[in-house]
Structure formats: structure tokens, C-alpha cells
Amino acid sequence: MKGNTEIQKLRTEDLHLYYGDVHALKGINMDVHSRCITALIGPSGCGKSTFLKTLNRMNDTIPSVKITGKVILDGEDVYGKNVDVTVLRKKVGMVFQSPNPFPMSIYDNIAYGPRVHGQKRRHELDEIVERSLTSAAIWDEVKDRLKKPALGLSGGQQQRLCIARCLATQPEILLMDEPTSALDPISTSKIEELIYDLKKEYSIVIVTHNMQQAARVSDYTAFFLLGELIEYDTTNAIFSSPKVQQTENYITGRFG
């Protein structure tokens, strides 16, 4: 793989995941590079979202899940002993498929994360809120109504708000689970631009079943099929000269 020149942020080693008897991830070995966008593609049910959720241990909340193997984040095993999941999730933020702002004001939504992690001072919260909303390119749209309910925003605005909410905890990695699948084309392109800007500061892993989106925004692309990582390479390589037949079939639209 070409990624050796770039700094590795996250690595999985022989990662298996079982939902009860179902073997959902089969020995995934994969590197995520720092300040790059990595896209996970594959037909639905291929395990790409499940894989994403193993990276910040969001699968912990599902009782029947069993995970083996390692997820190494900056040299520390995410599933190791003494890991503080709350700190992990602060460091590895997540944006979900459909926008999920909390039923509170825009301000409180953004301040939620910092407050979780103990930030109480009003002045600093104000600063974080403005900085996060600015980074998520939504500050100008909402600065006059920070105290209004977040649920009053449009879908696209809500999703950018959720990205801002995620940035407010100062993560190092952003996980995005099909962040535009519930949005209209205009909102989608705004979010894509935003994602592209964010890679200057963050490492981003994005699940998408929109191949054009993967091609447009990502530096690396991983193709998943039936719980296996079939091919992982630079986006250019995947889309121009895939090495595995299944990848080519998927990209050229023969299935999925």
C-alpha cells in the first residue's frame, strides 16, 4: 500500500466481530492515515458500518456483540484494559446517518460534549460554540438564533450542527456513518465540501454507499463485502485500476 509515507493514526489487526452466531467482521486488517479521508464502501450489510462502530466502541451498547482482535489508536489498544471509553469517544468523534440533534437549543447541543467532559465556564463554552460552528460552516446561519431549538433547523443544517457538536469535543478522528444519506443534493454537496475542509485538521473515516461521493472526497477507499475487507488502496487506484475482480464488479455497478 502507498500509505507508508503518511503518518498512521489507527490500525486494526485481525478484527473479528460476532452478533451472537453471526460472523459480521472477518479478520479486518486496515490502516487509517492521519489527516486523510478514508472511505468505506460496499453493498449494504457488508459490515462497513459495523466496522466503523468498532473504532469508537459504539458496539459496546449491543449486548450480544463479541469482538476479537485489536484496534490500535496512537499505539494504544482501544479494546485493551483500563481504556476509558468516554475519553476514547471524545478523541474519536462520530457523526450519524441521520442528523440527531438533541431536543435542546443550538447552543446547548454544541456545548453538550464539552460539558460532558467537565467544561463549565461560560466564557470558554461561548468560544468553543463559536469555533465549532465556524469550523462546521454553519456559524453565519445560526449565530442569531443560538438559543432556538436545534430541531427547528433544516436537515442539512442539522447535520452540519451535528458535525459541529462533534468538533466541539476536540476529537482527532471523525467517524461518519453515511452522513449525507438522509439529505438533499444541495445539502449533500455542502457537507462534502465541509468534510474536505476538515481533513486539514482531522483524520476522517466515512462510510458511504454512494461511490461518486467516495471518489469525490476520499484519499483512500476500502471495499467491504460480506464482512471481509476485499481491497484497500488509494481512491485513485481503487477507482482506476482495482486489483480484485469483486471490487471492479461493484464499482462498475454489476451488483450492490
Partner: peptide, 11 residues
């Protein structure tokens, strides 16, 4: 999604 959102932020 509210639960996921909050837990995902480390709550």
C-alpha cells in the same frame, strides 16, 4: 439516535 449521539460524544 439521541442515545447514540450522547454516548458517541463520550457521555
Amino acid at each position: 439516535s439521541y442515545r447514540e449521539g450522547a454516548l458517541g460524544m463520550g457521555a
